[in-house]
C-alpha cells in the first residue's frame, strides 16, 4: 500500500531531516511512528501525502509515485488518505457536522447520500450528539474525534495521524487511540506519529522509531 524506498529529504541546505528511509506498510496495518521531537516524523508523513517530495529515493502510495505524480493528481491521492493533526484543523465558523460535510462538499458530494455518510462517520467516532456544536464549544478530545470523522468520511485506505493526542489530556488520549484501533479493526490502516515511545510500546504492535532522521527500529 505504502512503499518508502531509500528516501532522503533535506529541508535546510546541507542538512537532512530524513536519511535512507525504507518502510513498507501493508493493507490494514497499525503502525506507530515514534522518536523524539525533531526526529523527522512529520516530515515522513508529509512525504506520504505528497506535500513535499524526496530528494533521493521514491515514495509509492496506492499507485501514485512521488517521481511521476502530476500536481493536479495530488488531490486524488489525498482523497484516498485520511489525515489528522495535533491541532485538529477544524474550521471555527462551521459546526462539527458542517466540518465533516465540508470534506465531501469540496470533492463534489451533496444531497442525501452525503448526509448519510457524514452521520455514519460521526456515529463511528461517537460524536453525533455534538454535531451542531461549534469546535470552540467542545473539548479537545471531542474536536479530535470530529477531525477523525472528517478524515474517515471518504473511507480512506489509511489514516495518517500526526501526534493526534498531543493537545489533549491522558484520559481523552486513550479514548482517541481506542477509536483509532477500532477503525483499524474494520480494515483501515493507521500510521500514528507520536514522540511518546512509551505509549507506542504499551499499545503493542509494530513500532518504527526514528532518531535524527534515521530509522533505528522498524
Amino acid at each position: 500500500m505504502i512503499e518508502i524506498r531509500n528516501v532522503s529529504k533535506s529541508l535546510k541546505k546541507g542538512w537532512y531531516a530524513l536519511r535512507d528511509i525504507d518502510i513498507s506498510i501493508n493493507k490494514g496495518e497499525f503502525v506507530f511512528l515514534t522518536g523524539p521531537t525533531g526526529s523527522g516524523k512529520s516530515t515522513l508523513l508529509r512525504l506520504i501525502y505528497m506535500d513535499i517530495f524526496p530528494d533521493k529515493g521514491e515514495v509509492a502510495v496506492v499507485g501514485f509515485l512521488s517521481s511521476t505524480i502530476k500536481k493536479h493528481e495530488i488531490p486524488f491521492l489525498r482523497r484516498r488518505i485520511g489525515i489528522i493533526f495535533q491541532d485538529f484543523k477544524l474550521l471555527q465558523d462551521k459546526t462539527v457536522y458542517e466540518n465533516v460535510a465540508f470534506a465531501l462538499e469540496v470533492t463534489g458530494g451533496s444531497g442525501r447520500k452525503m448526509r448519510e455518510k457524514v452521520m455514519k462517520a460521526l456515529t463511528l467516532v461517537g460524536i453525533s450528539h455534538k454535531r451542531n456544536e461549534f469546535p470552540y464549544r467542545i473539548s479537545g478530545g471531542e474536536q479530535q474525534k470530529a477531525a477523525i470523522a472528517r478524515a474517515l468520511v471518504r473511507e480512506p485506505f489509511i489514516l495518517l495521524a500526526d501526534e493526534p493526542t498531543g493537545n489533549i489530556d491522558t484520559e481523552a488520549s486513550m479514548d482517541i487511540i481506542k477509536i483509532l484501533q477500532e477503525i483499524n479493526t474494520s480494515g483501515t490502516a493507521v500510521l500514528m506519529a507520536t514522540h511518546d515511545v512509551y505509549l507506542a510500546r504499551k499499545m503493542g504492535g509494530r513500532v518504527i522509531r526514528l532518531d535524527e532522521g534515521r530509522m533505528v527500529e522498524w
Binding site: K71, H72, P75, F76, L77, R78, R79, I83, K89, L91, F102, A103, V106, T107, R150, R154
Partner: peptide, 9 residues
C-alpha cells in the same frame, strides 16, 4: 483544509 481533504486547485 480544502487541500487536505483533496479539493482540486
Amino acid at each position: 483544509v480544502m487541500k487536505l481533504v483533496g479539493a482540486t486547485e
